[in-house]
Design a protein around this nucleic acid. Structure first.
Length: 740
DNA sequence: AGCACGCCGACT
DNA sequence: GTCGGCGTGCTC
């Protein structure tokens, strides 16, 4: 046989494989696709993934280098996951090597052995004594050495902080040769024993039972279920009982949740219910724990895997079910690098591995609803709230030609006063942080423009600064106008800070609690706010969409939405969908059995058909209406989009680049005889300048996926080869969720 | 993306 | 005289 050639995917944005000779002294027959190899790349050494072994390379033999070493004796990534990565790279037109980087735990892509439960243990070195003169002026190191010496089998690194040892002292001792470390398995494989349930299952109502039985009957193969359950309808109980069935069948369940929901409550609920090994994968889990959880899932040593977006790529030895909660949530879509949608990929994965998948939401995305309508997904509805709680009543409050007092109209103030007087709580929703979205000179019209973006800087009174929410630029607000020097600078519009301040003045007898990214930035401050709220005394909560997620406020009976109009006349075609989901989710925080909640929506467009549908007929009526509008306009899910974005230092550069890319695409469409794909643009981005860079975009719209992907498959490699692709920063977003 | 090379402006 | 700005080119 000719010299075998290894084709590797490397962590680089380049959309191609790189050829290497096998490492010296290694039997090629021992190498299998999916194994990692350390290779020289330019002047660096990196870790690549073997994709295939071929007997010919187009690269001149002189350029071929041997790989340095094989890092695995078995491919760390099971074939199903390897296949999913191939599919992902192809679908999102992304570099395969970089796709592996997003899918694999950090430590694996850095070349760490793919082995479970290896842990570093600290041991006292032979002859090391605390009385050593080198430690005479290092009392903490001396104490550390004493502590370590008390443990003949060593101290596991994970216990270091519990034993009041500091890593610094240990490192110092290690350098002095007074400690040594050893890496070994930290504990034996945990086995599952006994019953799966720790507490009895809750009784299901008729709807829950119907949903449970429908899905339970479909647990043995691929099928997508859409569980549309209003807030409080007991979706989670259905999840838990299905997972129980999966566990009884000796299989594993993967549960994906949005970023914001990974509060301890989710985990607590699972841990209370199940005697099962639960692996947790989210952004606050460190690299080592993440790898261990990943390996435990892969090797069948975890029964339930709970995680956010990227946990989608967790391999499972005996997969039985995928659940994706709050499937409409935008945090499932990655917005940088590999721009994948975990919901869409989860369905692909379920199909590839012949698994059932359950998507749940009170406000399903229009995409998923359309899939249900077309019969691809099985739709299951839960319409009753637990404990007989009633659905909130909606009221559209027309504020056209009504004066607003820091964004709050008179009738709304009266409704608030009544609610508070009745001893209940009020929730005020406003999707804008800060005091005011801009500062205006009443004399000459100067406005607080961000110097680096086409956006206004928001006034944050608490920190006494003007801050741009798009690039983070901040400056001190001046007392006089920088243009005309007059002193008449006025804040325009209202954010949560201003609403908080104003409400405090209007209702001096009640506490006002603000809940947004600024007020909850400090650790523990959210918990503190929740404790106060749960005490149940009448108060006003003011906040952004943080209020809409996860927490329930049983004492809130009035929800005020200060401004719904942004969702009704935005340039973004998804704005109304997002607005509707937000309104329903916020409304869902309120009300209980004895007292239905009331939701007051301030709007200038009280007769807008979408808003009328939503408030009078509910979310599904809204969705039908919105879907027929999308169909008429040829927008997703009735067409498919891809967005080529570009940004550059100088004006016009990004557009020039996209112009060239656009000509290439036009040519290809003709050459390949592709029809059903339209090129829209290039145009400047809706916010042309951001963080000092000029941005433009080219939108591709396909009437079906096939022609769009056929084009992209040949086109994107050409775009990559364009001369401008170095000076211009560009990215492709397949199925973008926003067009900014 | 990294990383190096290379060619022009303001500094010890 | 050099430090360093970012344009250009390459990575098997």
């Amino acid at each position: 046989m000719l010299q075998p050639i290894l084709r590797l995917a490397l962590p680089s944005p380049l959309r191609r494989l790189f050829d290497y000779l096998p490492p010296v002294g290694i039997a090629v027959s021992s190498l299998k696709p999916g194994m990692r190899l350390r290779v020289p790349f330019g002047r660096r050494e990196i870790v690549g993934v073997l994709v295939e072994i071929v007997d010919h390379s187009d690269v001149p033999p002189a350029k071929l280098k041997p790989a340095l070493e094989a890092l695995d004796s078995q491919p760390p990534l099971p074939p199903e996951l390897f296949k999913l990565c191939l599919w992902t790279a192809q679908y999102y037109q992304h570099s395969l090597g970089d796709t592996f980087s997003w899918a694999l735990p950090v430590l694996l892509r850095q070349g760490e052995p793919a082995e479970t439960r290896q842990e570093r243990f600290w041991h006292a070195a032979k002859g090391a004594r605390p009385e050593d003169p080198r430690l005479s002026r290092a009392p903490r190191q001396r104490e550390a050495l004493k502590t370590i010496a008390q443990h003949p089998h060593g101290v596991a690194h994970s216990l270091v902080s519990q034993l009041q040892l500091s890593k610094d002292s240990l490192d110092q001792l290690l350098q002095k040769g007074m400690l040594r470390t050893e890496t070994r398995r930290s504990h034996d494989i945990k086995r599952h024993q006994g019953s799966w349930l720790l507490q009895p299952e809750l009784p299901l109502n008729q709807e829950q039972r119907a949903a449970f039985e429908a899905i339970n009957a479909g647990l043995d193969g691929f099928q997508t279920f859409l569980l549309a359950g209003v807030t409080g309808s007991g979706k989670t109980e259905v999840y838990l009982q299905l997972i129980h069935q999966v566990l009884e069948a000796g299989k594993q369940a993967l549960v994906l949740i949005p970023e914001i929901n990974l509060g301890p409550q989710t985990l607590a609920r699972f841990e209370k219910r199940f005697n099962a090994r639960i692996a947790l994968l989210h952004s606050n889990v460190n690299d080592r724990e993440r790898l261990d959880a990943w390996l435990a899932a892969r090797d069948g040593e975890a029964d339930i895997i709970i995680g956010t977006r990227s946990a989608l790529f967790t391999p499972m030895k005996n997969p039985g079910l995928i659940i994706l909660d709050e499937e409409h949530d935008a945090s499932y879509k990655q917005q940088e690098g590999l721009r994948y949608h975990a919901r869409d990929l989860a369905v692909v994965r379920a199909r590839q591995e012949n698994l059932p998948i359950l998507l749940g939401s009170a406000t399903p995305s229009l995409e998923s609803l359309q899939n249900a309508h077309s019969g691809r997904y099985a739709l299951l509805k839960l319409t009753q709230r637990a404990g007989g709680a009633q659905a909130p009543r909606f009221l559209r409050l027309d504020v056209k030609s009504r004066p607003l007092d820091s964004g709050i109209s008179g009738p709304l103030q009266q409704a608030m006063a009544q609610t508070l007087a009745a001893g209940q709580q009020v929730l005020v929703f406003l999707n804008r942080r800060g005091f005011a979205p801009s500062l205006l000179c009443h004399d000459c019209g100067w406005i607080s423009q961000c110097p680096r973006c086409d956006a206004r800087m928001t006034l944050h009174q608490r920190h006494n600064e003007l801050r741009c929410h798009h690039c983070g630029h901040a400056e001190r607000p001046l007392h006089s106008c920088p243009d005309c020097n007059k002193l008449d600078l006025r804040p325009v519009g209202a954010g949560t800070e201003r609403a908080e301040e104003r409400l405090g003045t209007i209702f001096p007898d009640y506490p006002v609690l603000r809940i947004d990214r600024d007020s909850t930035a400090r650790k523990g401050s959210m918990e503190q706010l929740l404790t106060t709220i749960n005490r149940g005394e009448p108060c006003l909560l003011v906040g952004t969409q943080m209020l809409a997620k996860g927490h329930h406020f049983p004492r809130v009976t009035l929800v005020a939405i200060l401004d719904a109009d942004g969702g009704l006349f935005s340039a973004d075609f998804r704005a109304s969908e997002r607005m509707a989901q937000l309104i329903v989710q916020v409304a869902g925080r309120a009300g209980r059995a004895e007292e239905p909640g009331k939701v007051i929506i301030q709007t200038h467009l009280a007769d807008h058909p979408l808003l009328v549908q939503l408030t009078e007929q509910g979310y599904f009526a809204f969705a039908d209406q919105a879907l027929s509008e999308r169909r008429a306009a040829g927008l997703p899910p009735f067409s498919h989009l891809a967005l080529l974005r570009a940004e550059a230092q100088k004006p016009g550069q990004a557009e020039d680049f996209l112009d060239q890319a656009c000509s290439q695409a036009e040519q290809l469409l003709e050459q390949l005889g592709i029809s059903g794909v339209e090129l829209l643009g290039p145009v400047p981005a809706p916010m042309e300048r951001r963080a000092g860079r000029f941005r433009a975009q080219l939108l591709l719209q396909g009437n079906a996926r096939a022609p769009l992907h056929k084009l992209m498959g040949v086109w994107i490699p050409l775009v990559e080869a364009l001369p401008g692709s170095r000076t211009v920063r560009w990215s492709l977003d397949v199925d973008p969720i926003d067009l900014f």
